[in-house]
Design a protein around this nucleic acid. Sequence first.
DNA 1: ACAAAAGTGTTGATGATACACCCATGA
DNA 2: TCATGGGTGTATCATCAACACTTTTGT
Lengths: 249, 249
Amino acid sequence: MTLTAAVPSGERNRVQNRAHVPLAVSTVIFALRPHPETGLSTLWLPLVRRIRDPFEGLWALPGGWVRADESLADAAARNLLETTHVRPAYLEQLYAFGDVDRSPTGRVVSVVYWALVRAEQIEREPEGENVRWVLADELPELAFDHNLIVEYALWRLRTKVEYSRIAQAFLGETFTLSELRHVHEAIRGVALDPANFRRQMLSGDALVVTDERVTGGRHRPPRLYRYDTSIELADNGPLPPYRPEGNRS
Amino acid sequence: MTLTAAVPSGERNRVQNRAHVPLAVSTVIFALRPHPETGLSTLWLPLVRRIRDPFEGLWALPGGWVRADESLADAAARNLLETTHVRPAYLEQLYAFGDVDRSPTGRVVSVVYWALVRAEQIEREPEGENVRWVLADELPELAFDHNLIVEYALWRLRTKVEYSRIAQAFLGETFTLSELRHVHEAIRGVALDPANFRRQMLSGDALVVTDERVTGGRHRPPRLYRYDTSIELADNGPLPPYRPEGNRS
DNA sequence: ACAAAAGTGTTGATGATACACCCATGA
DNA sequence: TCATGGGTGTATCATCAACACTTTTGT
């Protein structure tokens, strides 16, 4: 019996001239925008039209091949930038999809990332012909196994928003507790008690009160809060968090 | 600007003759065995000695290249079988490690799985010269980034044992609540109150009481329990669970 | 004054923890 | 009868959901 250790040497591979499984990266990109009917903040994501077989004409997740000189996360950030022209406020690996028959034209393994971006940063950019933003809960039929992938990404987002601080990624530098609550409500799809939500957020140490208030509403002016940037948005255990272009010591 | 949809066609790839990043699978395999000093149940994992560069002579996680005709999970289960001669009681994807410089001899992306196996099934097999079981918390220096990978796997295991039923994977068909508690204690490294542990387990609907009891101990004979097999060990959201050789709808 | 949202206080349900105590067996 | 773990009962405490109520603004 032969045992091969985890990362076999490049030499051996070349000697055996073994063909490798093609490796792609795709990204599920979430943003909050008003629902076309209700006007309420809702989850949207960008799709890309396929311009060749398989699934020509169908919509699919943005993605592409992994280049030899970029990490997986960098590849995801790159095709996110190419699709939306913004950098992600949050980026996390979702899953590696590797079933043999997930593409009809030959084996492909896709490492999928999911990202949160701020809507204001993209709203001004006109959508290209081949990019379309759609409601995350009302997807058309997508190419490959991308419907399942989006479902899983949505599940992770909704699960994770309850025990991490990723909701921050949808907001700017400072924000009111109402704005933060609306983000949670949009993602989870339920109304939350303002009083209890306030206490939950303030009981942790992630929020920092500022002196500023927002005036102009016809009601008591709310305080502005800021996130403690020394605390990560999510706990990845021993894995270093993704930093757009910094070092990850 | 060019946009490429998530899984590019095989055709295009062949036309451009683009070299793909080598793709490997590694597996962190956990089993419970007595600690050599204290005798208490402890986490162990098997390592494989590297027999060629890079890192020749160092220990590493079991792994190998992904074959064209097997899914990622099947590849993990295969090299797990080759290393330990058993099938996993639990198998889950951990993470895809894809930093450019993680191997000194050329780019390799590793999709890593983690698995739980039952110690009784392997104890009789003699260890090969190139396989060695070590305490999960006292690892030697490993090849590549494998120390980080094991740390992350341990973190996931310890986090997940608290909100899922994966502890079952270490036990047989039936078991006493003591045995189940000892599994939790071994993984989490803390003593648990037997009375409260009992209630926690029985409050869910995952445990099924049997009529049988275990006699022979010099104390009141404990009841045997069984897991409700219609409930998955862990909630993967919309993703289908891994089944050793069954179909996943 | 009134509407609307900000913000505070209070109560009751629920769940976890600590620990006292009884039970059933082997030696 | 004693030691050992199995198993039950219960008081205490922290957490959370529900909701009444006060505060501060714009109109």
